[in-house]
Design a protein around this nucleic acid. Structure first.
Lengths: 323, 323
DNA sequence: CTGAAAGCGCTTACAG
DNA sequence: CTGAAAGCGCTTACAG
């Protein structure tokens, strides 16, 4: 493949001038520029980004780590982030691998300009290590990490008040025994997410329970069918996302219950799943596009060396037919 | 950040030995290895992948270009591909940008080891250019490109017979006027996809129509509501994916029709959308995980310099309540 | 088994 | 405005 040297030779100038021309530093005369331009075209030359990255110690790439690639919440987030990054001459790459430390470290060693991650299913030490290397990092905080480095900027979604609102709404509609379906791997202090915590705090004066480690429609469906085949001791379910809520909905229906008269259901993310389900699902709107935008803006500021304070997001409740 | 030189100094060996040790070439004595290992630990050293890539001219990264990041078809595909790539010490990065040539070229100039793409919304010249640079490339062929380079390996999903099967099924169930809802930007020869072509061929003896440029649930819903508010001259819809099928379903329902007795609906991808919709949607199963696996296997072979013949996939029809 | 040295393709002070 | 030269952090024949 043609290199900068080939271009320089063909154009009859020095390699340095080719660099100056490409990087538009203004130190190239019109005539020389034209010759270089022509040589670039005939050789179909594209600068080697790897070499450039090695030299400048920046690769102008952001890596987004989000395990739950199927969740529309993340696809919207990444979509918006990509738009904004492209405008700023950066590239966004998406990796669904978050449970393989070697793999993630390797990715980051490509001198990435920044990292965005959602900390579900993720290890705090790995994040701290990345931060230690002075790689800008923004974390969408699903789980509270007491030991997370100060260098990591947080986007915090506040679930305390919205969960109170949901409980108030459900009890007003007649619910008395509420079950939360959580995606957490476990309910240990280090692995429980803010949503589940928010629910537990809001539901403490009520009959309630939490089922964990459920994050997809199929799992939710199978779990409900198995666990509550004979009797169901809840009259409402609050679910970690819309996909899970849909699985719960179909399962309780197939067990013979009616939604919302027998059982009320609330999802999360306000995705098309909740909008187009029948009955349509009550859901929590977190505004993933705003988070995607914030992620890039914060990363860009961190690259400039600015101090970036944590950001707090307040989600909204969207009431629909399922409650 | 610590470099290989720092490790070498601390361990009291040459930089070359550190390389040999890290790359496990076997040319390092046990004692030296131990010293190096210790130095690596104390310095918390991670090899710079950019420098390695520049030297070896391979970055051990695959880039997957798929614009439709929200489509479960692609998330499953990427999920499976990532698994397999990781096992082979490669990394998969996902980019939803396919309409910005500069951006894509830049990504590829990171000396990526291979590219996978779905050719919907994509430019054939760009793909040929990448192939010309001898970068292994596998294309999931949605659109027939007569001018695509021979260097590009194709995964072809055959829609001719499945569309015939669908038409036979729908007419047997009583349908007489069938509408296809396509995601194609236009129906020009260069932009029409194989699905739409397959439908047109299969439906040629029937009353039929094609609506194009619809790829998401909301768009499908709005389009049907607007276009057929007063009268609906079709009794069946075949849709480019399940998300669109769901939008069509909800729209015709809200116009007062009953599915399947008044109108029959068929989706595509056999995703959770079709399984958990009510009525459940008849759909086409394309087996995205197989395609994900094939993509990596073909890419790996191409890197070895092997000839990789095109692969053909035959989808299956899954009949459910919507037809 | 170990090390000195060349080179991957760039950028960028520096001198002219 | 232009060019010669150093160096980013690695790998890998080559010599010992």
């Amino acid at each position: 493949m043609a290199s900068r040297k080939d271009v320089a030779e063909l154009a009859g100038v020095s390699p340095a001038s080719v660099s100056y021309y490409i990087n538009k530093n203004g130190y190239v005369s019109k005539a020389t520029g034209l010759k270089i331009e022509k040589a670039i075209r005939t050789l179909n030359y594209t600068p080697n980004q790897i070499a450039r990255s090695l030299r400048t110690r920046q690769n102008k790439q952001f890596v987004f780590f989000c395990n739950d690639i199927r969740n529309p919440f993340y696809s919207q987030l990444v979509y918006r982030a990509t738009q904004l990054a492209t405008q700023n001459d950066y590239t966004v790459l998406f990796s669904p691998v978050v449970n393989n430390e070697e793999h993630m470290k390797k990715l980051v060693s490509f001198q990435v300009s920044g990292v965005f991650a959602s900390n579900n299913h993720m290890d705090v030490n790995l994040m701290n290590e990345i931060a230690q290397r002075n790689i800008p990092i923004v974390l969408l905080r699903d789980i509270e990490w007491p030991t997370v480095s100060k260098k990591v900027s947080l986007i915090k979604v506040v679930f305390a008040s919205i969960m109170e609102k949901i409980i108030a709404h459900l009890t007003k509609e007649g619910a008395q025994r509420i079950c939360y379906v959580s995606s957490c791997v476990s309910l240990n202090q280090n692995e429980i997410d803010m949503k589940t915590k928010g629910f537990l705090a809001a539901a403490k004066d009520l009959k309630h329970a939490v089922i964990h480690n459920i994050s997809a429609t199929d799992d939710a469906y199978a779990m409900i069918k198995e666990k509550y085949a004979t009797s169901l001791d809840f009259d409402a379910f609050v679910c970690t996302n819309d996909a899970v809520a849909l699985g719960v909905l179909r399962a309780v229906e197939s067990l013979g219950y009616h939604v919302p008269s027998d059982i009320k259901i609330v999802g999360c993310d306000n995705s098309n799943i909740s909008k187009f389900s029948r009955p349509a699902l009550t859901s929590i709107d977190i505004d993933s596009e705003t988070i995607g935008r914030l992620a890039i803006e914060m990363l860009l500021k961190k690259i400039q060396g600015e101090e970036v304070p944590d950001v707090t997001i307040h989600p909204r409740l969207i009431v629909r037919a399922s409650s």
